[in-house]
Amino acid sequence: MNSGPRASVKVREHRGCWVLDVEGQADFDEGDVLRSAMEETNGKTLPAMVIDLSALTFADTAFLHWLLEAHRAHENAGTLLILAGPLSPQVVRLLTITGTIDHFTVAGDIEAALVLAGSS
């Protein structure tokens, strides 16, 4: 495990979308934090979720698994899931090496992600 700030996730509704702000380092130990954040959105369905990864400094395959589960859930619900950057080089490397980057809609920043979501 890397030393450094543990992952934190803040959930908010912004311009008609769910926004999850993920910060720090996300690995196997943060699984409960990530699942809990997703559960906060269960009571109200919005047309899109933006996961802001601009402050995420490390992610492992457990985090990637969580992202893929979130993607699948949104696809099944007919809602958008957008990753907002800028992504750290480590996160880009994880998504590229695993061949999963093309499974996600990735925006350069939170504003671009909200435009993709159709939020004004």
Rank of each mutant, 00 (worst) to 15 (best):
W18Y: 09
T105N: 04
V91A: 03
G78D: 04
G118P: 06
E13K: 09
L56A: 05
L20G: 13
L64F: 10
L67F: 03
L68K: 07
V9C: 08
A62E: 08
V50I: 10
L64S: 04
D60T: 07
A112W: 04
F104V: 06
D29N: 04
S119P: 15
R12H: 09
R12A: 09
Q90C: 03
S3R: 08
V106R: 04
L68H: 05
G24Y: 01
E13L: 05
S8A: 10
H14Y: 06
N2R: 15
I110V: 13
E23R: 11
S119C: 11
V33E: 13
A62P: 11
I110P: 07
L114F: 07
E23Y: 10
P89L: 05
D21E: 14
I101A: 12
L46T: 15
F104G: 05
E111F: 06
E75Q: 13
V33C: 09
E69C: 15
R93H: 15
D102M: 10
T79D: 00
A55V: 00
E75A: 11
L46G: 08
D27S: 03
A84Q: 09
V19W: 02
M1D: 09
G108K: 13
L87D: 14
I51Y: 10
G4Q: 02
E69S: 11
L94I: 14
F58K: 04
T98W: 01
I97S: 01
G24Q: 11
N42L: 08
G16M: 01
P89Y: 06
H71S: 12
T79R: 12
R93E: 10
A59D: 02
E13C: 04
D109N: 14
A62C: 04
P86K: 08
T79H: 01
S8E: 13
P47L: 14
H65N: 12
P89K: 08
A7Y: 02
D29L: 12
T61V: 06
T61L: 00
F104H: 01
C17V: 02
S88M: 04
Q25H: 07
N76V: 14
H71K: 12
E30P: 04
A37Y: 05
L87T: 11
G85C: 10
S36A: 10
V11T: 15
G16N: 13
A117K: 06
T79I: 09
G118R: 03
L53D: 09
N76S: 13
L67G: 00
M38F: 03
E40T: 06
E69V: 01
A70D: 06
A77N: 02
A73P: 02
T61A: 05
A117R: 03
I82T: 02
T100G: 10
T61C: 14
A84K: 03
G99N: 06
A117I: 08
D109P: 14
H71V: 03
L83R: 08
I82S: 07
G16I: 04
S8W: 01
I101K: 12
L34F: 07
L56C: 14
D32V: 13
A26M: 12
F104Q: 03
D109S: 04
L68M: 12
D102C: 11
S36Q: 08
H14P: 06
F58A: 01
L20K: 05
M38V: 12
F58T: 11
E30T: 15
